[in-house]
Design a protein around this nucleic acid. Structure first.
Lengths: 190, 190
DNA sequence: CCATCATGTTAGTTCTTACTAACATCATCT
DNA sequence: AGATGATGTTAGTAAGAACTAACATGATGG
């Protein structure tokens, strides 16, 4: 299957994101990974080092350039693509995001990574809306639209993540497509 | 000013929400409160007890009934009112929300409180949209609209809370009014 | 002025946790 | 078969945290 280091890193991601750095013990991580505590220290020297290595391994970055090039200048289709991609990035980094939220001392390197996504997507979307405005498809301010769109996407993602489906019975996929349908109609009509 | 117990509870709210339960020490809380550690224990017996009492004291509940009765059946005005009220509840409970996010073992009593707001507002808004649909002001599904509206509100709130204004230069108030303007035009046109 | 009460101080107990050292085991490669 | 290397085991250290006990201080109120 996978190496000892991988097993340990995987276990630590699971636990750190569930409980936060301080609340997790190395003993616990070792047990979750199915190795002895000693093995953990032999591979990673310290708990903090393990934490850093976990981060490095698990930050997932999107290929926004490829995404942008695949757009077809059809509002609903494109927004669906962009939103899916954004949700995907958020989803793939959810453990990292949770870890971030649960830790007091924030790793600067890590913060930068975390803020990269929203900003990248904002630039991408602003450009897209700008172009769409030039084509006469919409008339609203591109940046306003972009921020609105991304914040809602983030809200949807985060609601489902934090509330763990306890709030609102509508599932997230339905929410997203509803949202995009309305948003599209809306901005092309304005 | 305020009693010793208040000072301690205030300090603990600040610290628990910043770092999470495990990562905060009673020594730290005492220092932040400007009292001795002994005084803390004399008043609250244990760290966990202090935590529970902090929760009890700081959960702020909205008066949604009064809110609903104050509505004027003017879409933009009403949505602004509802959104402000929602943001206000979220804002006033932000420390609690952060505390919740940072703690592994979730207090069930507390969880219930946390999920109450979104659900309460969802019911309120659904009813509102339902009535607006009956009046012919909108045609979309009330529940869909409600979920959309609340998720975006939550997204806005949470973005500004977590990202701490590092993402997106647009400030949250502008975002909100932009959003409501667009949303209003949108659903009354559809 | 004296009793009371809240607080501070200091020292200490117990427990947990990060982390280490030394030795044991066991599979793999030569 | 024997050497090597990765892992387990056990015991232990050092630091920090929750929490306690005993005594000191200092303000308040009758």
């Amino acid at each position: 299957m996978c190496t000892t280091e991988d097993k340990i890193i995987n276990a630590s991601i699971v636990l750190f994101s569930k409980k936060g750095y301080t609340a997790v013990t190395t003993k616990e991580i070792a047990k979750e990974a199915g190795v002895s505590q000693m093995t953990l220290f032999r591979h990673f020297e310290s708990k903090h080092n393990l934490f850093e290595r976990s981060l490095d391994k698990f930050v997932f970055s999107p290929k926004s350039k490829a995404l942008f090039e695949s757009l077809e200048w059809d509002l609903e289709k494109d927004l669906n693509k962009i939103c899916s991609s954004y949700q995907d990035v958020l989803y793939k980094n959810q453990k990292i995001i949770l870890m971030h939220l649960k830790n007091e001392e924030l790793n600067p390197h890590f913060e930068a990574v975390l803020y990269k996504f929203p900003n990248e997507f904002k630039k991408l979307l602003s450009n897209y809306f700008e172009e769409m405005r030039n084509r006469g498809a919409i008339i609203e301010n591109p940046e306003t639209l972009a921020v609105n769109f991304l914040t809602t996407s983030f809200g949807l993602f985060f609601t489902s993540l934090v509330m763990n489906k306890l709030t609102f019975d509508t599932d997230i996929q339905t929410c997203i497509s509803n949202y995009i349908k309305i948003f599209t109609k809306c901005i092309s009509l304005l």
